[in-house]
Amino acid sequence: DHDVVPEDKFQETLHLKEKEGCPQAFHALLSWLLTQDSTAILDFWRVLFKDYNLERYGRLQPILDSFPKDVDLSQPRKGRKPPAVPKALVPPPRLPTKRKASEEARAAAPAALTPRGTASPGSQLKAKPPKKPESSAEQQRLPLGNGIQTMSASVQRAVAMSSGDVPGARGAVEGILIQQVFESGGSKKCIQVGGEFYTPSKFEDSGSGKNKARSSSGPKPLVRAKGAQGAAPGGGEARLGQQGSVPAPLALPSDPQLHQKNEDECAVCRDGGELICCDGCPRAFHLACLSPPLREIPSGTWRCSSCLQATVQEVQPRAEEPRPQEPPVETPLPPGLRSAGEEVRGPPGEPLAGMDTTLVYKHLPAPPSAAPLPGLDSSALHPLLCVGPEGQQNLAPGARCGVCGDGTDVLRCTHCAAAFHWRCHFPAGTSRPGTGLRCRSCSGDVTPAPVEGVLAPSPARLAPGPAKDDTASHEPALHRDDLESLLSEHTFDGILQWAIQSMARPAAPFPS
């Protein structure tokens, strides 16, 4: 592969990997390779389809078979030569091979799209000592099968071997295949498990690692696999990028399955594409389908809103127990993405979901129960707010008499603000006073009005108090039968009158 990737590009890729991570280095090298001529790309395919690569990765054979028959990708048995050289000459001794072996032994695996480039050397060096003999053996194999790289107009793939297949390693990572398949204008990513390549439709969760975000852009890794992070704060999961590491605690105790298979379609829109997988259930989501939507993949363990709600429900009964003089119970939860139609709101002032922060849900004790107040519409209280300059209440639009249902020339009671006709409430011909108009209920007259088809109010509507207090003497005590009587009149003013009279009014101040 030294004929494909020059030394300066190799060093530039290593520097970019240390600065921005393996995914960015892979993407940059792939983009550079696509700008080369067809001879360089053909050399790339020839390096990929060597015999030892085909033996190690069985899924490469179907890719090789898909090439046109007129494309010669065979390799000479006596060494490598550029395709432009007409004579089959043995190339001179390859010093770059020693360079590659020494550099890969030092860096474990470079971040390139060629056999030198995919593992994360920093994480491997940190986690190597417990498994040094086995990992050293794996390093000797890295130059042979560490990076199976493929690129063409139909298929483009980048393979990364790992030393996680050490025997006896619980939940060992089998390997990473960062794979971009450009077929019919689409893009897919796969993962390699035990020599087999699994596409998103049959993606397997190998051991402790999972394909957290099938994305090839942005600074985030394709698999949430930063070796420096180790395990999740809650004892979460091992990262795919942690090559040759000792077994780590796999999943939280509440995880239903340690080796679950995540779905390959969004649980909201039932469509495929780039998904984020939940650590607590097999569901996966688009970032845009979450509520609120996320802009980037959160670091650490992530769970959907259903799993978060289940966790909150487990903690909430203990938080609601009476604990005198104790601060509110704080339950730190990872930043969760909410699927459509589901929402768990945190306290005000918290950062938005999706940031690399930890939301704190506070379970406050329930407030003391209070008697429910009568629910009145805002339009129902409008007549009470229509007060004239002299303190006389004006008529609201649409006000109707509670007896006849007519809204023409209605009066407004100064005591309960109900609309009424003087002739309907006082049919006996009582003279109307000039000021202080009161309806039949507030004036103490319980004589029913002779209106055909309208039920008369119940005599129990009024329960006047002592006459010594004029204001308190007109406080009506309405009961269920009074409400039914008012409802039978089918008037809004009657219902409003009952609601206003049912509310307690402050006692009249004593004259000074």
Rank of each mutant, 00 (worst) to 15 (best):
G241H: 14
Q242C: 11
G244F: 13
P253Q: 11
S254V: 09
S254A: 12
Q257A: 09
Q260T: 00
N262H: 08
E263R: 06
C266T: 06
C269L: 05
R270H: 12
G272K: 11
L275A: 11
C277F: 08
C278P: 14
D279R: 09
F285R: 15
F285I: 11
F285E: 14
F285L: 11
H286F: 04
P293V: 14
E296I: 15
T301I: 09
W302G: 13
W302E: 14
R303A: 10
S306H: 13
S306G: 09
L308S: 07
L308K: 10
V312A: 06
E321L: 11
R323Q: 09
T331S: 06
P332M: 15
P335H: 12
P335Q: 07
R338L: 15
E342K: 14
E343N: 14
G346D: 13
T358K: 05
T358P: 08
L359H: 05
Y361N: 09
K362I: 04
L364T: 08
S369D: 08
A370G: 13
P372C: 15
D377M: 04
S379Y: 15
S379F: 14
L381Y: 01
P383A: 07
L385T: 07
V387H: 05
G388F: 14
E390P: 07
E390G: 14
G402H: 03
G407D: 07
G407S: 12
F420K: 00
W422V: 12
C424A: 02
C424M: 01
H425P: 02
F426D: 09
F426P: 05
P427F: 10
S431V: 06
L437D: 05
R438D: 04
G444D: 06
V446T: 09
V446Y: 08
P448V: 14
A449P: 15
P450L: 05
E452C: 13
P457L: 12
P459Q: 07
R461E: 04
R461G: 03
A467R: 09
A472K: 07
P476E: 12
A477Q: 08
R480L: 08
R480C: 07
D481L: 02
D482C: 04
E484H: 02
E484Y: 05
S485Q: 15
H490W: 00
F492N: 01
D493N: 03
I500Y: 03
S502C: 06
M503A: 02
M503R: 01
P506R: 02
A507H: 08
A507M: 06
A508N: 09
P509L: 11
